[in-house]
């Protein structure tokens, strides 16, 4: 049993090591900087520039956060500071439900609702032509998928602010909103950042739903209505299909390795912040 425990703890490292081993052939030929920053993606000519995919990931994730963070924080503030206990009891399972929906379903919903909405209404409103399969479609779907984790962590963080600190502010004649704005948010700031980073690391790796609505064109997007091709989508779409092309699988495995390391990095950062927050409260 102990061996099993150790094994499951080591799995992440084994995976990273395996990916590294398999991506060595391409690393032996091409410098890492060229792979990461070249925009030229022509596997048949032996050119593997990940830049469009990295930018695709950053665009989709960035816009998703821009949508999700304000909504989630306001929700968390409402739930932790204003809502009646009964409202909290009702909304918690509903938010959990959102976390339990399979990502394919989110993708389908995106194709059926969000993509046409963008194509027919939102993009024309700005005078732009778009197929609807775009950064913004991916971001909206992704934003909704990361709602639960950000809301949950943020609610916990806001509730961990001692009531007496709010009371001190109220006793000085501050209104509830002034208290929340100047005291509660400030006190909760490190934890809020951790909640956002946790959402961010989830968003980075999310594959299925984004792949279905983001358009998947290997070009650096220049607006939110352009299609994007995030890294996870690239890997999922191509691995196992085009392996006759030399070095292709090695390139994809390198992409996986990069993704794994980035997600791990953000996860560790958010854990460290959360642990600090807990300690500072005790």
């Amino acid at each position: 049993m102990m061996l099993l425990t150790i094994f499951s703890g080591l799995i992440v490292f084994l995976m990273a090591f395996g990916l590294y081993q398999r991506s060595r052939p391409i690393l032996a030929i091409k410098p890492l900087t060229e792979l990461l920053f070249s925009t030229s993606w022509h596997p048949l000519r032996g050119e593997f520039g990940f830049f469009p995919f990295i930018m695709g990931t950053l665009w989709v994730t960035g816009v998703a956060l821009a949508i999700a963070v304000p909504l989630c924080l306001l929700t968390a503030i409402y739930l932790s500071q204003y809502a009646h206990r009964r409202v909290r009891e009702w909304t918690n399972p509903l938010i959990d439900l959102l976390a339990g929906i399979p990502s394919v379903v989110y993708g389908m919903w995106g194709i059926l609702i969000i993509v046409p909405l963008i194509k027919n209404h939102i993009a024309p409103f700005f005078g732009i032509f778009s197929t609807g399969y775009s950064v913004i479609a991916g971001s909206i779907v992704l934003a909704i998928m990361i709602f639960p984790i950000i809301i949950h962590v943020a609610v916990e963080v806001f509730r961990s602010v001692p009531y007496e600190v709010s009371e001190a502010s109220l006793a000085l004649g501050a209104t509830k909103w002034q208290t929340v704005k100047h005291v509660v948010i400030r006190k909760a700031m490190p934890g809020v950042i951790a909640a956002i980073v946790l959402g961010l690391s989830r968003a980075f790796g999310e594959t299925m739903a984004v792949l279905m609505v983001a358009g998947n064109v290997a070009k650096v997007p220049s607006s939110v209505f352009d299609p994007a091709y995030p890294l996870p989508a690239l890997i999922a779409n191509n691995y196992g299909e085009m392996l006759s092309v030399p070095l292709y699988d090695s390139a994809l495995l390198l992409a996986s390795l990069v993704l794994l390391l980035v997600v791990l990095f953000f996860n560790i950062i958010s854990r460290v912040i959360l642990i600090r927050v807990e300690r500072s409260i005790q």
Binding site: V165, E167, A168, S169, L170, A171, G173, V183, R186
Partner: peptide
């Protein structure tokens, strides 16, 4: 509330 200053059991300075 502005007319009253409150001192609680433990000091809670604002952050």
């Amino acid at each position: 509330r502005k007319k009253m200053g409150l001192l609680s059991q433990k000091p809670f300075p604002l952050p």
